[in-house]
Write a protein that binds this DNA or RNA. Structure first.
Lengths: 210, 210
DNA sequence: ATTATTTTTGACCGATTGGACAAACGTTAG
DNA sequence: CTAACGTTTGTCCAATCGGTCAAAAATAAT
C-alpha cells in the first residue's frame, strides 16, 4: 500500500517544476510567504502565472514542497555529527559545516528564518517531529561526551541553539554584517574570519590564556 | 534653526499615535511589513482605518517611526558597556542585558529581524550610521582590553555578532526553541538556562576543565 | 496523417490591498 | 451661543492579489 499516489511525471513537468522551485526559493526567501506574489515567482521562472499554476496548484503548495525538500539539506550537518568520533573534532566540524551552509545556501537559511519568525505556521509539525527527534538524539550523544569528560558540561540543547544562531546569523543578517564590517572587511573573507572566531569561541571562550 | 518642524500635537494626538504604534509593533513583528495590513493594525488599535490614516499618513510612516524609536532601546545594552569597568564583568553584563531584552521585548527583536532579513530596505541608513558607529567605538574598547591581556584576543566585530546572534535567537526563533525543549523545559525557565549557558560559553568555551 | 494528450496563454473573477475624500461629529475658545 | 478647529466615519477607488477557465498551441502516440 502506497501512502502517496505514484504521480507519473513527464520530462517537461520535472524540469518546469524544478525551475519554479528555484524561482520560488529566490522570491520567498527575500519577501517571506505573504510578501511573495505568484506573479513574481512566475516571472523569475520565465513563465506566465497560469502556466505556473498548471504545475503547482497554489502558492502554499510551492512553499510546503520547498520546505520538505530543504529540511533534509538543512539538518544534514547535524546528522553527520558522529558519536564515535573525537568530540572536539566533531563539534569543530559541525560548526564549520553549518557555517559553510550559511555561506553557500543563504536563501535556504532565510526561508527557514522567515518561517520561524512568523510562528512557523506551515512547518510546525516538521519542527516538533523530525527536527526535535534529531536534536534529542544528538543531545544524548553530547551528554555522553560530557560524562566522559571529553568536553565541558553544559546544556547540550542550548549549545546546539548557540551553534545554529551564530552560524545562521551570517546568512540571515548578511546585510547588517556587511554594513558593520564595512567595504574592506565585509568582502568574501568574512566567512573565513567568522570560522576562525567561532571555532575559537566555542572551544576556548574569552577567558585570557596563561 | 530647526531641522524638523515643531509639529504641535494635541493630547489626543499623542495618545492615539502611541496606541497605533503599540498595535503596529504587534502586527509588524508577527507578519512583517508586507504581510501586515493597515486594517489589522487599525483593529488592534481599536479604531477605523481612515481614523488611523489621520494620524499616520501611510503604512510606511508607521514603520519608520517604530524603527527610529526602537533603535535607541535596542542599542542601549551595548551603549552601557563601560570601557572603564572590569572587562569580564562588562561582557558578562552585556550578554545578560541583551538576553533580558530578548525576553522582555521579543516583538522589537522580531521587527528588526524581519527588516534585516529582507535586506533592510527601510533602515539601511541607520545601520550604516548610528549602529555601525557604536559598534566601531565598542570594538575599539574591546581591542584595548585584548592588548591589556584582560580578555582573549579575538575579532571584536565577530564577538559582537555572536552575542547578538545567540541572545536574539531566543526571541526570533522562540517557537522553535520552545518546540525543541519540549513542554517541560520550554517554560519560563528557559531564559535562566540560556543565561547560564551563554555566560559559561563566552567566558570558558567548551574545552574540558582541568 | 490523425488523434489524443500535454502544455501554454489571454481573459477574466471576486477578494483584498493601501489610500483618498467629503461629510458628519466632537471639542473648545471666544 | 457660535465659530473654529480637531476628530471620526462611510463610502469609494484603482491596483494588486490568488486563482479559474476555455481555448489555442505544442507535443506525443497511433
Amino acid at each position: 500500500m502506497e501512502t502517496a499516489a505514484p504521480k507519473r511525471r513527464t520530462r517537461i513537468q520535472i524540469e518546469k517544476r524544478e525551475a519554479i522551485l528555484e524561482a520560488a526559493l529566490d522570491v520567498f526567501s527575500q519577501h517571506g510567504f505573504r510578501g511573495a506574489t505568484i506573479d513574481q515567482i512566475a516571472e523569475a521562472a520565465g513563465m506566465s502565472k497560469p502556466n505556473l499554476l498548471y504545475y503547482f496548484r497554489s502558492k502554499e503548495e510551492m512553499h510546503v514542497t520547498l520546505m520538505q525538500r530543504l529540511l533534509d539539506t538543512w539538518l544534514a550537518p547535524l546528522r553527520e555529527l558522529d558519536d564515535e568520533g573525537d568530540p572536539i573534532s566533531e563539534l569543530r566540524g559541525y560548526i564549520r559545516r553549518k557555517l559553510e551552509m550559511a555561506r553557500d545556501f543563504p536563501r535556504e537559511s532565510r526561508l527557514f528564518a522567515n518561517e520561524i519568525l512568523q510562528g512557523a505556521p506551515r512547518i510546525m509539525p516538521m519542527i516538533e517531529g523530525e527536527l526535535k527527534t534529531l536534536v534529542d538524539e544528538k543531545a544524548r550523544v553530547m551528554k555522553r561526551w560530557m560524562r566522559d569528560g571529553k568536553i565541558a558540561t553544559v546544556d547540550p540543547y542550548h549549545l546546539i541553539f548557540a551553534i545554529w544562531a551564530t552560524t545562521q546569523h551570517y546568512a540571515d543578517f548578511d546585510v547588517q554584517v556587511r554594513a558593520v564590517l564595512g567595504p574592506d572587511r565585509g568582502g568574501d573573507g568574512r566567512f573565513d574570519d567568522a570560522a576562525r572566531f567561532l571555532e575559537n569561541l566555542f572551544l576556548e571562550g574569552l577567558r585570557p590564556p596563561r
